[in-house]
Design a protein around this nucleic acid. Sequence first.
DNA 1: CGCCTAGTTGAGGTAAGTCAATTCACGTGG
DNA 2: CCACGTGAATTGACTTACCTCAACTAGGCG
Lengths: 234, 234
Amino acid sequence: MMQIKPLARKLGAFVALTDAELSVLDGLHKRRRTFVAGRDLVHQGQSDQAASILISGWACSYKLLEDGQRQIVDFQIPGDFLSLRSVVLHISDHSIEPVPDIEVTEVNISDLMKAFSDTPRLATAVLWAASRDEAMVVEHLINIGRREAEVRVAHFLLELGARLALVGLGSKAGYACPLTQYLMADALGLSSVHVNRVLRKFREGFVTFYNYDRLVKFADFEMTYLDQIGPLLA
Amino acid sequence: MMQIKPLARKLGAFVALTDAELSVLDGLHKRRRTFVAGRDLVHQGQSDQAASILISGWACSYKLLEDGQRQIVDFQIPGDFLSLRSVVLHISDHSIEPVPDIEVTEVNISDLMKAFSDTPRLATAVLWAASRDEAMVVEHLINIGRREAEVRVAHFLLELGARLALVGLGSKAGYACPLTQYLMADALGLSSVHVNRVLRKFREGFVTFYNYDRLVKFADFEMTYLDQIGPLLA
DNA sequence: CGCCTAGTTGAGGTAAGTCAATTCACGTGG
DNA sequence: CCACGTGAATTGACTTACCTCAACTAGGCG
């Protein structure tokens, strides 16, 4: 199956998985489902969560405020888990919306647990992936809390690029991005109008990923939190 | 030991732990150490992390930016783990600073792993605690991204209050707060001057926790992400 | 007694928001 | 094939929430 590669590829960037482990990983992918863009697949407050793995397309997890504003917490790209934390908490603290149409495969929690005890290296790899996701949320928080709009947008674009590169969907030359400016605004804590202005300024100026290094510097982009320092496992 | 209660108390709010489990938990607490306020106990980028449990005092985990600004990601209060994620990632993506003087006990990773396999309920409880911490970071992100200063400060104060209440260090009537306005500013993505003004306005107005319910409403404070919906374990 | 840190307060500046109009790309039905 | 509708991007004019700079006060402590 070519399509279930992204997770294996992402984890593989961190530990070299054996064929046996890869096949256990493959075995986790159960029912495949598709969802159309814009219609939530998980609602804030919903209990009884199942986890799934994103195969194709992007999704975003967000939370709505009383006054109708929303804040996007994170985007998920192929290879990412959806709702992993919700499984532990037994309730989803956020909603998830497919950005373009998406394909996912559901994961049986009991299968997952069994896979973890049978294949500890896999358990470690998934734990690592979850910790990396958490580190990304932290970086997102810093981005919103302390960086001004231009740097913030640049940092955001670079981080997405780095993540996509890890699953073979982009490079330093760029990547296909299905996000609207409204989505970016909700992720970055800005208004869509302002996102538009920033992007225009980038276009007029030096930025579009030609000049990757300059952009990295400008955005104060430190990817150690995405990188792994050598294999974690022996 | 009266002082190692907070963790047990926090976990106990989520699963009723047996005496046996409690004693395993107690056994995790190894060498006790103290650190003085203001001197980092962990530095951003430091590898080779050990986990510890905060016994008394508060700490904050933060990240510094190139230009010298800082963003505080979270405060830790008694009963919280320090550096749990750093253990998995094998590197700390943030620094940790004691706010007043603190006491911690170090935790041996191998002990922790053994405790998890011997006492699965304990493992689940700790996993739950970690997930709750993650949910708090998410809520913090939303707070910074989409709420204006006054609501943001109110929400922050309420969340701290709820967390402290869970370990017996506060109530709806209030709590002892060792934070300076500078610390609050760095946590909330505001300037200390502005924090000061907001607090003044609160003092002049209706707020100081007398009127808890009104404050909750004002702050759009939804504590389901802190609560647990009944015991997760049978 | 004098320093140092935290808290306060005012004046003035600016990054980013809101409101609103316009354009553009597109799909869809007549 | 064209009129129309819809969602996204764009742009301008104006407002504002929050920032910076700077001065001053009040405790705590060697």
